[in-house]
C-alpha cells in the first residue's frame, strides 16, 4: 500500500513564481491602467450578475490569466446541479494522518504555496484523552517518520459546509453564501477582508490571504471555477468548496481529497440520493458532526467503521 514516492525538487525560483500584481491588489487602480481595471473595480456582486455578465467576467479573467501566466486557464461559473445536496463522510477508524489529502487539496485548488494556505488541518489526538468538544488537545504539527503512530488517532478538519453556516450569517457584505447545492462559497472579488467570518467559523475552515498568494506557473491547475479554485488575491478570505470545479459537473469527479486518500476514509455523495454512499453511510453507521452543540448542522459526517 505504500505509495511510490518520486521526489523531484523544483524549487521556487523568483522568476517562475507567479507574482500576481493583482488587479485588485493595490489600493486603487492606476489612473493609466485603462477602463478594464475600473471595470474590475466596479464589478458587481456575483449573484447580481446576469448570465451574460458572468460570461463576460469569466472571459476577462481567462484573458488576464493568459497574459499573467502565459497559459490557458479555464474558468467556469456554472451553477448548481438540480436535486443535489453535497455531503461528506470521514471514517475516523481508517484515517492514518498521512496528510495526502492536505496536499492533493493544495494542488487541485491552486492554493498559495507561499504564504502557505491549506484548507485541511489534520489533527492528532492521544488515544483516551479528551478531544472532541473544543479540540483542545489537538496537535496539528505532528511529524513522525511514519504514520499511524501507536496510541494516537487523527481527525482531518476542513470546511464542514454547514446548513446553518455561522460565517455567512456574519459577513457584512454578503460576499459569502450557501449555494443551493449546499456548498458555502466566497466571491473573492466582493470580500473586503474584514475576517468576521473567520471569527465566527467554529471549524477554523476559513483562510485569509495575508499576502499576495503565489504558485509556480507550471503547478497551476488550469481547470478552475469562479467560486472555487481560481486565483485569489491578497486581502480576501477563501475556503474549501468540496472542489466545486470538479463536483458540479454531470458527470463530475470526486473531490481531490477523496481521490487521494490511501485508506478510503473519505466518502462523498449526494444527500438527496438515497442510494448514494453518503446516505447509506448515515443510515447504517453511527455518525457524528463536529461541535454539534453549536447547531451549525454540518454536512460533513464523521464516523467510526469499527
Amino acid at each position: 500500500m505504500e505509495g511510490i514516492y518520486m521526489k523531484r525538487r523544483d524549487f521556487l525560483k523568483t522568476a517562475s513564481v507567479a507574482v500576481a500584481l493583482g488587479l485588485e491588489g493595490i489600493a486603487l487602480p492606476d489612473r493609466d491602467a485603462g477602463a478594464s481595471i475600473w471595470e474590475t473595480f466596479f464589478q458587481k456582486h456575483f449573484r447580481e450578475m446576469t448570465q451574460a455578465e458572468k460570461e463576460e467576467v469569466v472571459k476577462k479573467l481567462e484573458t488576464d490569466y493568459k497574459k499573467r501566466f502565459g497559459k490557458d486557464i479555464k474558468v467556469k461559473a456554472n451553477g448548481p446541479l438540480p436535486n443535489v445536496l453535497y455531503g461528506y463522510g470521514l471514517d475516523l477508524t481508517r484515517c492514518v494522518g498521512c496528510r495526502r489529502c492536505v496536499y492533493a487539496c493544495v494542488t487541485e485548488n491552486n492554493l498559495s504555496r507561499n504564504p502557505q494556505i491549506q484548507y485541511i488541518s489534520v489533527l492528532r489526538f492521544k488515544s483516551g484523552e479528551k478531544w472532541v468538544d473544543d479540540l483542545e488537545d489537538a496537535d496539528k504539527y505532528y511529524n513522525p517518520d511514519v504514520v499511524p503512530e501507536p496510541g494516537h488517532f487523527y481527525m482531518p478538519v476542513q470546511c464542514q459546509q454547514c446548513e446553518k453556516p455561522a460565517c455567512t450569517k456574519v459577513c457584512p457584505t454578503q460576499a459569502t453564501w450557501k449555494e443551493p447545492d449546499g456548498i458555502v462559497v466566497v466571491d473573492y472579488n466582493w470580500c473586503i477582508g474584514c475576517r468576521y467570518c473567520m471569527a465566527a467559523c467554529p471549524y477554523g475552515a476559513r483562510k485569509f490571504n495575508w499576502a499576495q498568494p503565489t504558485i509556480p506557473v507550471e503547478q497551476i491547475n488550469p481547470q478552475t471555477h469562479y467560486l472555487g479554485n481560481r486565483f485569489k488575491h491578497r486581502g480576501c478570505v477563501e475556503k474549501c468548496t468540496f472542489c466545486i470545479q470538479r463536483v458540479r459537473e454531470n458527470p463530475g469527479r470526486y473531490p481531490a481529497c477523496v481521490e487521494i486518500c490511501p485508506v478510503g476514509a473519505r466518502k462523498f455523495g449526494n444527500l438527496l440520493d438515497e442510494k448514494s454512499e453518503i446516505r447509506l453511510l448515515i443510515e447504517t453507521k453511527r455518525v457524528f458532526r463536529l461541535k454539534e452543540h453549536l447547531n451549525t448542522n454540518p454536512k460533513f459526517y464523521y464516523f467510526f467503521s469499527l
Binding site: E24, A27, K169, W190, I192, G193, C194, R195, Y196, C236
Partner: peptide
C-alpha cells in the same frame, strides 16, 4: 476598522449589499 480590512478599497461593498439585519458588523 479601515486599517484592519484586507481590501479597504472595497469597503463600499457594504453599502451595496449590506447583510442586514444578520451581520452585527453592519
Amino acid at each position: 476598522v479601515i486599517v484592519d480590512l484586507g481590501r479597504p478599497q472595497f469597503a463600499w461593498h457594504m453599502l451595496i449589499t449590506p447583510n442586514f439585519p444578520n451581520s452585527l458588523l453592519v
